[in-house]
Design a protein around this nucleic acid. Structure first.
Ligand SMILES: [Mn+2]
Ligand SMILES: [Mn+2]
Ligand SMILES: [Zn+2]
Ligand SMILES: [Zn+2]
Lengths: 137, 137
DNA sequence: CATGGACATGGAATTCATTTTCATTTACGC
DNA sequence: GCGTAAATGAAAATGAATTCCATGTCCATG
């Protein structure tokens, strides 16, 4: 087995701050945005540490990660345990979870029949939300 | 309608070279890889031009684009007209198209029922192909 | 209380794909 | 051939993400 090396994690105020700031965000935020907020707010945290914290949170399944159009990673705290996919507004970033059971089964089936192992999937939906839609004249 | 601005395109040897090089590739390649090949081969093309050519090809639906684990964009000439999704080997990059009709319908339905407009989707599958799978002892 | 070592931090420097700039060249309708 | 908009490409800029590394903090031990 690949040595199940539980990431050794100490509780530091910085990590707490990152998690807290993440909790205050309604929607997906980039590491940079998050860092900017933290600098503005009470507890300043280094950008490097923000990235490290986000990596850990991802590794332990506490955040969902998506990529925006430019490839930048966006993070969002995962409330309900479990895998989720989202529909994101390309303009404002607003997001909503979507029911992806159909896709999960589809991906699973491909994993079983493809001859590939460890099949993982990325599914992202983007659109323009009601608030961002230009009202017809 | 959104002004159907047909990209005015002149026929240049560079663009031809990019398209030709792309045709010679079995699988997804990055702009950088493609550029490296072109430099080695007969017809050298500037990196900038490679990027520009790929953008056009993407805009006109002549290539499929995916992102690898690091977010780098990979391109592949689209042989059969129409939308495709792929299962990629994380180790060697080998790819195979997958039947995604289920997902297409799913995405379409979400587009209709979500209150979002212009819903687009990204679906990527990655795994480890037979050739890359470490043989059990 | 030291002392030590493992873990953490964060500013600076680095990496690297992609984009921008801009002076120069080229394709092509007339 | 001419004129000009389009295209090219070298160099510089951009920007997210990572790596370096000197410094700081936690904690188990004696
Ligand atoms: Mn899923
Ligand atoms: Mn599709
Ligand atoms: Zn919106
Ligand atoms: Zn492989």
């Amino acid at each position: 087995m690949t040595g199940a090396k539980s990431s050794p994690t100490r509780n530091t105020p910085q990590r707490a701050a990152v998690l807290r700031a993440l909790g205050n965000c309604q929607d997906f935020v980039s590491a940079q945005m998050l860092h900017a907020r933290l600098v503005t707010a009470d507890c300043a945290v280094g950008l490097t540490t923000v990235y490290r914290a986000l990596h850990q949170l991802q590794a332990t399944g506490q955040v969902d990660v998506v990529r925006d159009g430019t490839g930048e990673r966006l993070y969002r705290r995962r409330s309900t345990a479990g895998h989720q996919h989202y529909l994101l507004c390309r303009d404002c970033g607003r997001s909503r979870p979507v029911d992806s059971r159909v896709v999960e089964r589809w991906a699973e089936r491909i994993g079983e029949t493809s001859g590939f192992t460890d099949v993982e999937h990325t599914v992202e939906l983007t659109g323009v939300c009601g608030r961002c839609r230009p009202t017809a004249h």
